[in-house]
Design a binder for these strands. Structure first.
Lengths: 248, 248
DNA sequence: CTTGACATTAACGTAACGTCATAGCTTATA
DNA sequence: TATAAGCTATGACGTTACGTTAATGTCAAG
């Protein structure tokens, strides 16, 4: 005769499991002692092992119960049904794997696109539109200088700059939980500011204006949103804090 | 703006599901009207569709929530993790299938079993062994394609195919007295050839190679012998004649 | 004004236990 | 022998992703 604990160790299940199996009538103790303790015998142990076998095969307990209380041929047909179900699961799982693979490819492709596109706003075409707006706000001569500066980089250097710029945003997203006023985020803003030197050297007001524009101009906004929905707003807030601290 | 009902019809989910997604913060309505009605906009619809996509992939809702609120690169790594999990599930399911098959065989005692097992050689385990051999002989990609094709049939369809395949051999045995070159037997070979389409479309050489293998591979041989001692040899001879007549 | 279609929240049920909480029983040790 | 340690019992909530009533409120149409 085994107590719950003993049997649970023998069979490698939890005491709770035995309680539960008793509760649902799947495995009743051989008898209940006077003190209310459950007492299992070897027959119960055997049955438990059968239960565990079918459980391993992902049978539901309810089905196991029917199975064990049924004649042999019903067990066979139950197994055959289960075989069908397992095959269906296999087929489905294979489909899922393929879809996941496709999706990963797709996303990676998008990421490459994003990477290339992120700073593409600074590329020939788009910067001309950007420059037009900026001219109204800032000094036209500065903008033209920025254009010239950018155009004179080699293609390789350009890509390098784009990658570095991209990294700033990636890091920023990772640091978002720290808060816009955290030292970490502020350091990233500083990096971004320095990065801007590749285009032109903005003053503090311009820095904030640029950050604001990132959140408003559809082209920029789209790219930011594709990285993280809150990035644009968070970014502007971080820059605002940075500018305040620098000018104050 | 959509009401719950409208959105549920658009997206093909239940109203309860929308309530629930709102409750757990997975999909919040764009706004709540004065009467307390949920109002969803197109952004919500888009998000819902993403949710359903990941749900299809067996992601847990909690994971989906994190996913959708995270930047792109985290989505990729989440998908990669999921890919691992799916592969584990696939491997486990394959093991279970084999165990179930063994158990059925054990319970049933080889006799009636033969009928259904005959073509089960094309199932997971056995086909993998078969595939290994076949790869040496044929094009590996073709074999993989065959695997995929077979796996994508429904359980019902599979059984149907197995039964049909089995019938070919039964008819063949009945026709053996007519001789391997008889019109009747040759017609059966033709049927068999067409039947192979369920797995892949073999050319004439492959057809003969397959028939030969049936007489040599122990797994197949055993099944053939259990039906009729001369079936394997007779079958190969019949196929040889068929192939000659077709290619000549 | 009633009816019917739609909306809301609340709450139970599902599967198979894990995890407390509370309380009684047994055994070992000081 | 008293006490602590260890085992036992039952009860009940938590988990996942909703389905399914139930009770009740709102809106448009006849």
């Amino acid at each position: 005769m085994y107590t719950v604990k003993k049997l649970s160790i023998l069979a490698g299940v939890s005491v709770r499991t035995l309680h539960y199996y008793d509760q649902i009538g799947l495995l009743k103790p051989a008898k209940i002692a006077e003190n209310g303790y459950r007492q299992y015998d070897n027959v119960a142990l055997l049955r438990l092992q059968q239960i565990l076998f079918y459980r391993e095969l992902d049978f539901k307990l309810k089905d196991i119960k029917e199975l064990l209380d049924a004649p042999g041929f019903e067990q066979v047909s139950a197994l055959e049904n289960h075989w069908d179900a397992l095959w269906a699961r296999l087929a489905r799982t294979e489909r899922l794997i393929k879809t996941v693979e496709d999706t990963i490819q797709h996303l990676k492709g998008e990421k490459e696109m994003t990477k290339k596109k992120l700073f593409a706003a600074f590329s020939e075409e788009e910067q001309s539109a950007y420059a037009k707006k900026a001219e109204e706000q800032y000094d036209p001569e500065t903008v033209r200088a920025s254009n010239r500066k950018w155009k004179n980089y080699s293609a390789e250097k350009k890509q390098e700059i784009l990658d570095e710029g991209n990294q700033v945003y990636v890091d920023m997203i990772a640091a978002m939980p720290q808060g816009a006023d955290s030292a970490e985020v502020q350091a990233i803003v500083e990096r971004w500011s320095a990065h801007m030197d590749y285009f032109w050297r903005p003053n503090l007001d311009q820095l904030l204006g640029l950050a604001t524009m990132y959140g408003q101009s559809p082209d920029f906004k789209k790219n930011f949103d594709s990285m993280h929905p809150d990035l644009a707003d968070f970014f502007r807030e971080a820059v605002r804090i940075y500018v305040d601290s620098q000018s104050g």
